[in-house]
Amino acid sequence: MKQYQDFLKHILKEGSDKPDRTNTGITSTFGYQMRFNLNQGFPLLTTKKVHLKSIIHELLWFVRGDTNLKYLADNKVRIWNEWPYKKFTQSEDYNNETMKEYVELVRTDEAFAKKHGDLGPVYGKQWRDFSGYDQLANVISEIKKNPNSRRLIVSAWNPPQLKDMALPPCHLLFQFYVKDNKLSLQLYQRSADAFLGVPFNIASYSLLLMMVAEVCHLEPYEFVHTIGDAHIYSNHLEQVNLQLSREPRKLPIMKIKHHDNIEDYVYEDFELVDYNPYPLIKGKVAV
């Protein structure tokens, strides 16, 4: 995906070194946009292997309005572990459990998961229950009834509840657009970890676009990714340069099953075809 490679190059060329909340240090720019035509293939990075299983399960977790780590732990998805584990280590119940031991407790002990596995009112809660309003169901209904609406919006940014979230939403607002029986989606992301997070965000929202298009009997067309603070963490610079040394390969194809209800989707409904990435490049998440 040349768009993503150009994004990394832009940050390295135009970015400034800044301190950040995690005390890791970043190279940061403000304001960037990428566009992905889904007719040209599914936008999953080929310059490094991306863990699609985690992306699908996380998206299904959002769609169902779930906010507890247990579903992700049951499916061996690790991308949210650091935040609730950090909170657990500060609780009176902490007894020097390792991250691995903590995740196993979430997976096997229902009472423990209920007490120490919840992430607060994060994405899924806001999508499905924004102060009692099911945004996702209503926007799908509106796409079907009034596809020319300019109000086809879902927001995860709920200011009074930010303090209760494990992490305030980074990808915080998305809007649908219908033209010529084709459905597009634009995401606004306030903060973007260019190396670790953005590849997941691109694939996740492209997949959401495909799911909503299926439910609404439309053709998925374009994913537009608009970013506020775009940054590369200082401990990812070596990995970014390695990735930029690799020539992007042909994009894979994503096949998904048709459902009339978005809540009916399960992991087995997705099939990725002809994915031929370069090897995985590891990087540590900043918490």
Rank of each mutant, 00 (worst) to 15 (best):
R35E: 13
R35Y: 06
N37Y: 10
L38W: 01
N39Y: 11
Q40W: 06
Q40E: 15
G41D: 08
P43W: 08
P43T: 13
L44Q: 14
L44F: 12
L44T: 11
L45H: 06
L45G: 07
T46F: 09
T47R: 07
K49P: 02
K49C: 07
V50M: 13
H51D: 13
L52R: 08
K53Q: 10
S54P: 05
S54Y: 03
I55P: 10
I56C: 05
H57S: 03
H57A: 00
E58Q: 01
E58G: 00
E58V: 01
L60M: 02
W61A: 00
R64W: 09
R64I: 02
R64S: 11
G65N: 06
D66N: 12
D66M: 03
T67Y: 04
K70I: 02
L72V: 01
A73T: 02
A73F: 00
D74T: 00
D74P: 04
K76D: 15
V77T: 00
R78M: 04
I79D: 01
I79V: 08
I79Q: 01
I79G: 02
N81K: 03
N81M: 01
E82W: 02
P84T: 09
Y85G: 05
K86F: 12
K87W: 06
T89W: 07
Q90N: 14
Q90Y: 02
Q90F: 04
S91A: 13
S91F: 11
S91K: 11
S91Q: 12
D93T: 07
D93H: 13
D93I: 02
N95G: 00
N96G: 01
N96I: 02
E97F: 09
E97R: 04
E97T: 10
T98V: 05
M99G: 10
M99N: 09
M99Y: 08
K100N: 15
K100V: 15
Y102Q: 06
E104T: 13
E104C: 00
E104V: 08
V106T: 07
V106P: 04
T108Q: 14
T108A: 05
D109N: 15
E110F: 11
E110K: 13
E110T: 12
A111S: 13
A113M: 06
A113T: 08
A113S: 14
H116W: 15
D118N: 14
L119C: 12
V122Q: 10
Y123D: 08
G124R: 01
K125V: 10
W127D: 11
R128A: 09
R128G: 09
D129G: 13
D129A: 15
D129Q: 14
F130T: 04
F130L: 11
